[in-house]
C-alpha cells in the first residue's frame, strides 16, 4: 500500500483509493459510511492540489513564471489540511483497506469549508492571470490537437480524453464508492480558443474540474455522518483466491488495479494501469508536424508524472 503513494505522488490519495477498491472487491467487505465520505473529501482535495500543481507548472512550461507562485500558495493550504488529518505532506497512506487511518480532528471540516470559501474566488484569478492571457493562448491553442478517435484508440483518459470532447468520467460513468450521491458536471473541451482537443482545452478542463471538485466537497462536508471509520478486519489479511480489476478516476485519468490472489496474505501478481503511461504513449502521435518549442507545451498539457509512467 505505501508504494501506491509513491507511484503518482501528486495524487497519492486517489491511488490509495484505487488500490483499496481492488482489495475490497476481492474481500467483499463493507465500508462504514463516514469512511466513505472522508475518502471522497480527501480524494477531491487531492485532486485540487494536483490540478493546482499541474496548471502552475504548465504555466512555467509555457514561459509564465508567476502563476506557479499563485497556485503553490493555495496548494500549501491544502497540504496543511492534509497534514492536520494524517500528518504527512505528500505521501499520505491515508486510505486503508476497510476504511481510513484517522478520523477528522475537531473543527477540521469547518476548516475545509473555510478553505473552499477562500479558494473559489482564486480560480477567477488564475483565469485572469493565465487562461485569458494572449501569449498563453497563442502558445497553446491549436497545438497538439488530439481527436477523440485517436484518444480512445490510445487509451487516453482523464482530462486528456475530456479535453477532446468525450464526456467520460469514471466518477459518473462507472461510479465507485459513493460518487453516485453527488451532483456535479463533467467539463469537456469545446474548442473555444482553437480546435477541440488542443493544449488549451486540456488545460481548461483541469481548471473547470477544480470548480466541480469544490462542489463535491461542499456536498460531502454537509452530508457526512458520525460513525466508525474502519471496517473490522483481521490483522493479517488473507485475501480470497481470485482476481479483480478496478478502475477509478485520478486527476490524470483512469487508474486500474489488477490483482491476482492465490489466497495468501500477499498478492501473487499486481499490475497497475497508470494513466500517465497511456497518456504519454500518444505523445508521438499528436506532436507530429509541430515545432520543437511546442513539444514542451504538449508535454506539459499531457501532465505526466514519471513515477506513474515507469512504476
Amino acid at each position: 500500500m505505501p508504494y501506491t503513494d509513491r507511484k503518482d505522488y501528486c495524487a497519492s490519495i486517489n491511488e490509495n483509493f484505487g488500490c483499496c477498491l481492488a482489495v475490497e472487491k476481492l474481500l467483499g467487505c463493507e465500508i462504514p459510511e463516514r469512511a466513505d465520505y472522508l475518502r471522497v473529501i480527501m480524494a477531491e482535495l487531492n485532486r485540487i492540489a494536483s490540478h493546482l500543481l499541474v496548471t502552475g507548472v504548465f504555466g512555467l512550461d509555457t514561459g509564465a513564471f508567476t502563476p506557479m507562485l499563485h497556485t503553490f500558495r493555495e496548494r500549501e493550504r491544502v497540504l496543511d489540511l492534509f497534514e492536520e488529518i494524517c500528518g504527512a505532506r505528500l505521501t499520505y497512506h491515508y486510505i486503508r483497506i476497510g476504511g481510513v487511518s484517522q478520523d477528522a480532528p475537531e473543527g477540521w471540516l469547518n476548516r475545509v469549508r473555510e478553505f473552499l470559501d477562500y479558494f473559489e474566488p482564486k480560480i477567477d484569478e488564475y483565469n485572469q492571470l493565465l487562461s485569458e492571457n494572449t501569449i498563453f493562448i497563442n502558445r497553446t491553442a491549436n497545438i497538439g490537437v488530439l481527436t477523440p478517435e485517436v484518444a480512445i484508440n490510445f487509451g487516453c483518459s482523464g482530462p486528456m480524453l475530456r479535453g477532446s470532447g468525450v464526456k467520460w468520467d469514471l466518477r459518473k460513468n462507472d461510479p465507485y464508492s459513493i460518487y453516485d450521491r453527488f451532483d456535479f458536471d463533467i467539463p469537456v473541451g469545446t474548442g473555444e480558443k482553437g480546435a477541440v482537443g488542443d493544449c488549451w482545452d486540456r488545460y481548461m478542463v483541469r481548471i473547470r474540474e477544480m470548480v466541480q471538485s469544490v462542489r463535491i466537497i461542499r456536498q460531502a462536508v454537509d452530508g457526512i455522518t458520525e460513525g466508525p471509520i474502519k471496517a473490522k478486519l483481521p490483522r493479517v489479511l488473507k485475501v480470497p483466491q481470485g482476481e479483480a480489476y478496478t478502475r477509478s478516476e485520478t486527476p490524470r485519468g483512469e487508474v486500474g488495479f489488477y490483482i491476482v490472489s492465490t489466497g495468501e496474505d500477499k498478492a501473487y501478481r499486481m499490475r497497475l494501469r497508470s494513466p500517465s503511461f497511456c497518456n504519454l504513449s500518444v505523445l508521438a502521435e499528436i506532436s507530429q508536424g509541430s515545432m520543437i518549442a511546442d513539444l514542451v507545451c504538449i508535454l506539459g498539457s499531457v501532465d505526466i508524472i514519471l513515477g506513474d509512467v515507469d512504476r
Binding site: D5, L53, V57, R89
Partner: peptide, 9 residues
Amino acid sequence: ACCAIEMMA
C-alpha cells in the same frame, strides 16, 4: 520522483 515536488514546493 516525489522529492522533486517537495523541492518545487
